[in-house]
Simulated assay, not measured.
Amino acid sequence: MDRFLHCDLPRGAGNCATSHDTAAQARRHRQQRRWATQIVLIHDLALHACAERGLAPPDDLMPMQLLTIPESDIADLGSIVAASLAHSPAARALLSALEREQHIPDTAVRDYYDRNRDRFLTPEALRRGVDPYDEPAPTDIHPYGHVRHGIERELRHAAARRAFFDWLDEARADVEYAEGHEHPGDPTQPDHEHRH
């Protein structure tokens, strides 16, 4: 946890401007400690979940490492979950297992294709400025058979992330935090931060 306490918080992991103000620095340190607590907690919970499922997390014996987290992941997942998945082999192994468990019916894949025609315009149609919702020619849209597997993979990935959030909510429901280590978004704390 010390490594996380002394690293810079990713964007979105608190709203503290850099300041020489002692109160602001103390507030930032409290928020960073709370944020780091969550990363370590998720790693420990994921290790336990992997053991229960008989999963061997890759590189299980390696310590959690500080890595750069893509801003798109922070935007999609929030800084705590994005950092946990970046740093914890156990969290990644659990997410992978959850992804393998997701069943995406063909009707859902076809519905996604039909509702998101703009995502499947051919490069030539894009260059011509074809409106995907104004009866484009069949040759302007990639055929369903060509994009079906990619859509299914994307939907399975999204479903796995939702399942990971559900698991996490349940896994940490009964966690009791020591004073000063509460979740940084805990509304019972006077300096909580929780923005999207």
Rank of each mutant, 00 (worst) to 15 (best):
F164C: 08
E182T: 05
E193N: 06
H194R: 09
T107A: 15
Q38M: 13
T107D: 15
A171T: 07
Q102D: 15
R195S: 09
H142I: 04
L45C: 10
L45S: 10
D140H: 09
E179G: 10
S79V: 00
A82K: 01
G14I: 01
L41T: 14
R110A: 12
A178F: 00
H6G: 04
S79N: 08
P138T: 13
H196K: 04
A36C: 12
G185K: 00
D59T: 05
S84I: 00
Q38A: 09
R195I: 01
I39E: 02
A91Y: 00
F165C: 12
P70C: 07
P70S: 14
R33H: 13
E71G: 11
A163I: 01
V175H: 09
R34T: 07
P70M: 03
D111T: 15
H194T: 02
M64A: 13
R156E: 06
R153G: 12
R34M: 06
R30A: 07
C50H: 03
A93T: 03
Q31T: 15
A75R: 12
E182D: 09
G129L: 06
D106F: 01
T22F: 00
A163H: 06
L67C: 12
E52D: 13
F164H: 09
C7V: 15
L5E: 14
Y113E: 12
D191E: 08
I80Y: 01
A137M: 12
R156N: 10
R162E: 13
D76C: 06
F4E: 06
Q32G: 09
R53N: 11
I74G: 11
A171G: 06
V130D: 13
A108P: 10
P190D: 09
E99N: 15
R34D: 02
R117E: 09
H6C: 01
Q189A: 01
D60P: 01
R28K: 13
D106G: 11
E52A: 13
A178N: 08
A108K: 08
G185D: 10
V109H: 07
G185P: 02
L55C: 12
L94M: 08
V147P: 05
D21C: 11
T139N: 11
E176N: 08
A173G: 06
D140M: 03
V147K: 07
H146M: 09
P190L: 00
R195D: 12
D131R: 07
A173Y: 06
A125E: 10
A36D: 09
L5S: 09
R148I: 05
R115Q: 15
H196M: 01
Y177P: 05
S88M: 01
G145H: 06
P143R: 11
L95R: 15
G150Y: 02
A171L: 00
H192G: 01
D191S: 03
L121V: 05
D114T: 15
F165T: 14
S88H: 02
A97H: 14
S19Q: 05
Y133A: 14
D76R: 14
A26Y: 03
T22E: 13
Q32I: 04
